[in-house]
Simulated assay, not measured.
Amino acid sequence: MAADSDLIKLYSQRILALAADIPHRGALKAPQARVKKRAPLCGSTVTVELCLTDDKVSAFAQDVKACALGQAAAALLGQHVIGRTRLEVEAARDALKAMLKFDGPPPGAPWEGYEVLEPAKEYRNRHASIMLALDATAEAMAEAEHAACA
């Protein structure tokens, strides 16, 4: 019974609602950068495309093929990513990783909502999928700093 209740907590209604409503799905016509990340253990993938203006995300698209937890993490990213700098994205990524691996607090403002993923701390095999969207976005931002958006 405890295992069933843990899974129910892990796949809460909030997680499922986020997974069903991922912002910025699709592709950009002329992205400055495109990065695809894959979680080797489960096969989840996230592809991110973006453009920067004044070092901030001005256009963003994502293609998410992941478990509900990876989808929820991508949805949260999509809610907050426009207008963010690479340092802000990297700070959110690092905070999320610390939350999952070291029981740290969830990412703070302006990245509200990641606390919904706290029950996943116990499921290390899910961590890579949860990290995909932020990892891909940080890498794409680094690439975009060296390109021009058409």
Rank of each mutant, 00 (worst) to 15 (best):
Met141Lys: 12
Asn125Ser: 15
Val64Leu: 00
His127Val: 05
Ala27Asn: 04
Leu76His: 13
Cys67His: 14
Arg93Pro: 02
Pro105Asp: 08
Met131Thr: 10
Arg93Ala: 01
Ser44Leu: 09
Leu76Glu: 11
Glu115Tyr: 08
Glu112Lys: 14
Ser129Asn: 12
Met131Ala: 09
Arg124Trp: 15
Ser58Gln: 07
Lys9Ser: 14
Gln32Trp: 00
Asp94Ala: 15
Ala74Glu: 07
Val46Arg: 03
Pro31Cys: 04
Asp55Leu: 14
Leu117Met: 14
Arg124Ser: 09
Val116Ile: 11
Arg34Ile: 04
Met131Trp: 09
Ala95Gln: 10
Gly70Ser: 04
Gln62Ala: 08
Glu145Thr: 07
Ala144Trp: 02
Arg38Glu: 13
Val46Pro: 01
Gly26Phe: 07
Ala30Asp: 11
Ala147Pro: 07
Gly104Ile: 01
Lys56Asp: 04
Ala72Trp: 09
Cys42Gly: 06
Lys29Gln: 10
Glu88Val: 07
Asp21Thr: 04
Pro31His: 05
Ser44Cys: 10
Asp55Tyr: 10
Glu143Asn: 11
Leu76Gly: 13
Pro31Arg: 04
Asp21Trp: 00
Asp94Trp: 08
Leu50Arg: 06
Ala74Asp: 09
Val116His: 06
Glu145Cys: 10
Val46Tyr: 02
Gly104Val: 01
Ala150Gly: 14
Asp54Trp: 02
Asn125Ile: 09
Leu100Arg: 00
Gly43Ala: 14
Ala95Pro: 12
Arg126His: 15
Gly83Trp: 00
Ala59Ser: 09
Arg86Gly: 14
Ala33Leu: 11
Gln79Thr: 03
Pro119Gly: 02
Glu88Ile: 09
Gly83Gln: 02
Arg126Phe: 15
Asp135Gln: 15
Val89Glu: 06
Asp4Ser: 09
Leu41Tyr: 02
Glu49Gln: 08
Leu41Ala: 12
Asp103Phe: 07
Leu50Cys: 05
Leu7Asp: 13
Val116Asp: 08
Ala142Lys: 11
Ala120Cys: 09
Ser12Tyr: 12
Pro40Asn: 06
Val46Lys: 05
Ala144Leu: 06
Gly104Ser: 13
Ala128Lys: 13
Gln62Thr: 01
Thr137Asp: 13
Trp111Val: 00
Leu96His: 05
Pro105Ser: 13
Gly108Leu: 08
Glu139Met: 10
Ala33Ser: 11
Ser5Ala: 07
Ala72Lys: 07
Val48Arg: 08
Leu52Ala: 00
